[in-house]
Design a binder for these strands. Structure first.
Lengths: 217, 217
DNA sequence: CAGCATCCGCTTTGATACTG
DNA sequence: CAGTATCAAAGCGGATGCTG
């Protein structure tokens, strides 16, 4: 990336992390922790090998990423975020929240990974009944299932399987998000191709918070 | 910008606002409000006319910017952020905060505009003595002076002239920021080329808050 | 096989000039 | 003032090849 050559904090940030793929590389490192080159590649469908190598060098010299030689039996190079790189997390979170309304409009040929969805869900969904008993629901979509847990007012989502979920939603990621975001009525879920099992009142507890709803218009 | 073709809120955001110059155009619209094409150009040194026109079209079709024909006597086209565009503000603010440490390291040939600096200062500086009487300081740097006001715990900064400032700092933007951020001791200010007048204890009241200091390492 | 580097063609951006 | 047109340079995508 050529510099904007402005003495402006925004422009200086974009000089470092505004290049194509750069923030998506940071996303992968946030989600996966220390990662091998090959794992990053796999989490960035469409990136070319040379560009990933270029970007990792740039990020390293910008102090955002560090590289570390893992000892045997791993015996490979691991890339990880520096503390400075970790501080990009709020930027990513704001962009994810801002981008959420775009997840409703369909996009052609889009790759889906469940850990991307899990992060977005965790940022957008609140528990309407913080004092009720904890619940777990499982979303069967993307490249692997997603567990959403609500307990004591906090909602956590991650790729993985649930032990005994109160409910499961199965289908395409898009309508499932529509249901969770409250843009598709629970009663309409089956009609848009979301297969529902278990206690749907558990799903009804999970809804966007006030600020998130504002973004969804 | 070619789409990343990922079903990921971050990637979808970057599809719309991740292109070169795009977030800087949004910055200008946040700082200036509804603006003419020529004003935007002037606030974006180095952008070429065709690219600005392209980006404005893209942002318009993305629902971030709207264009409006102003009635006489202005009789020109005004560009402004839509509510959806306004919601990018947190993204910009996080990027400004993250980029602040980069303002200390010098960059060659950088353009400076005082309204960029004012926004950054407002985001990074707190009033250590919220209960004390209001103070105003003036920074003479950039393309015009900057007024920084602290009253009732809130700090506001804007391009403009102060009526009767308690203190003024005059010089290059970089060392002035260094002083305000507490990275250069007040006693060293003159030594790094910052001319100080008035009551320097007023300047000493203004310092990064806790979270901001964390970013500055 | 992991971790790149190289080559090539296409697309995006930059520089400059020009127009209603 | 608010753009469009043209052309050159840089960035990027796709394929392939190299090296431990």
């Amino acid at each position: 990336m050529r510099s904007y050559e402005e003495f402006c904090a925004l422009a200086r940030s974009l000089d470092l992390v505004g290049g194509r793929w750069t923030l998506l590389i940071v996303r992968e490192l946030v989600l996966r922790g220390p990662s091998r080159y090959t794992d990053l590649r796999q989490g960035l469908p469409g990136i070319t090998s040379n560009l990933l190598a270029d970007r990792l060098r740039e990020l390293e010299s910008a102090g955002v990423v560090s590289r570390r030689e893992a000892p045997p039996p791993i015996a490979t190079t691991l890339y990880e975020l520096t503390p400075r790189g970790e501080q990009l997390r709020p930027v990513l979170e704001d962009l994810i929240r801002w981008g959420m309304p775009l997840m409703i409009e369909p996009v052609a040929e889009a790759a889906v990974q469940s850990n991307w969805l899990a992060w977005a869900i965790e940022l957008m969904i609140s528990d309407r009944e913080p004092d009720a008993a904890p619940i777990t629901i499982e979303l069967r979509t993307g490249d692997q299932p997603i567990v959403v847990e609500a307990r004591e007012g906090a909602v956590h989502a991650r790729a993985g399987v649930a032990e005994e979920p109160e409910a499961t939603l199965t289908g395409e990621a898009q309508p499932i998000l529509g249901v969770l975001l409250g843009l598709i009525d629970l009663g309409q879920a089956e009609a848009v191709g979301v297969e529902c099992t278990g206690d749907m009142s558990a799903v009804a507890r999970l809804r966007p918070g006030l600020e998130q709803a504002a973004l969804l218009g």
